[in-house]
């Protein structure tokens, strides 16, 4: 009985018959009341970035109206989050990645800021490119850059678009055969087979002030 249960469990795992986790979804935030926005970015309480720490759900920053907001020079409001970059002897890579949560696709810019508050580099929309369905900017660290301020980008918020993503996977199944010999002795063996499955999906996204953000840092392992 225990064996059967184990086999069933294994088959379920392999065949993917476990109940799927429902996908998160957020309605796109394309406008909000700017009354609560501060006139400048507050660098205190910055989230530390650690070189080598992988992207996980734990270090995800979920942008929404509960995050701080700044009124930019052109008067547009932007939700933002401040990261404290590590001081390191060697340059490292910084990844800024946003991902859609349902139709809400966070679109951002990023400013590098020195300890004295001077903006040293601005990464605009053209610094980001699609990596799968995420938007990613990959950057090399520079000496003297202490903070990274990631802001939602009002100039692109509201843009709706479709995107095709393709999936092609091996769908594995396990088959257990029980053989009973003339002497009544039983033996069993399990074989595994794989079937290719695939398809494409059309996503409807809207660039928005809300959504998922990860900022991670990784070492430059071999620069060649």
């Amino acid at each position: 009985m225990k064996g059967k249960l184990a086999i069933t469990a294994a088959c379920c795992l392999l065949a993917g018959c476990a109940k799927p986790v429902p996908e998160r979804t957020l309605p796109p935030l394309i406008a909000f009341n700017p009354a609560y926005c501060a006139p400048s970015v507050v660098l205190q309480d910055a989230t530390p970035v650690i070189v080598g720490e992988l992207e996980t759900p734990k270090n995800e920053i979920l942008f929404d109206e509960s995050n701080p907001c700044v009124r930019q020079q052109d008067g547009t409001p932007a939700i933002y989050h401040v990261f404290h970059l590590p001081a390191a002897d060697q340059p490292y890579l910084i990844t800024v990645r946003t991902e859609p949560v349902g139709p809400a696709y966070l679109v951002v810019t990023a400013d590098f800021i020195a300890a004295d508050g001077t903006v040293t580099r601005r990464i605009g929309g053209d610094g980001f490119s699609f990596h799968g369905i995420s938007l990613t900017a990959l950057l090399r660290s520079r000496p003297g850059e202490e903070y990274l301020v990631v802001k939602s980008d009002p100039s692109r918020v509201g843009y709706a678009f479709d995107q095709i993503s393709e999936v092609s996977l091996l769908y594995s199944t396990a088959t257990t055969t029980v053989v009973t010999s003339k002497t009544g002795k039983t033996s069993s063996f399990t074989s595994f087979s794989s079937t290719p499955v695939g398809g494409s999906r059309n996503h409807n996204f809207v660039f928005s002030h809300n959504g998922s953000l990860h900022v991670t840092a990784s070492p430059i392992l071999v620069n060649k």
Partner: peptide, 28 residues
């Protein structure tokens, strides 16, 4: 210098949501 200034891969019409390549969704 025996080094690389830039290295990357671009995939037009990628599969399985790759995160380490620049990807271009296909024109429908």
């Amino acid at each position: 210098a025996d080094t690389v200034l830039m290295k990357d891969t671009v995939v037009y019409n990628p599969f399985n949501n790759p995160k380490s390549v620049v990807s271009i969704p296909p024109d429908p």
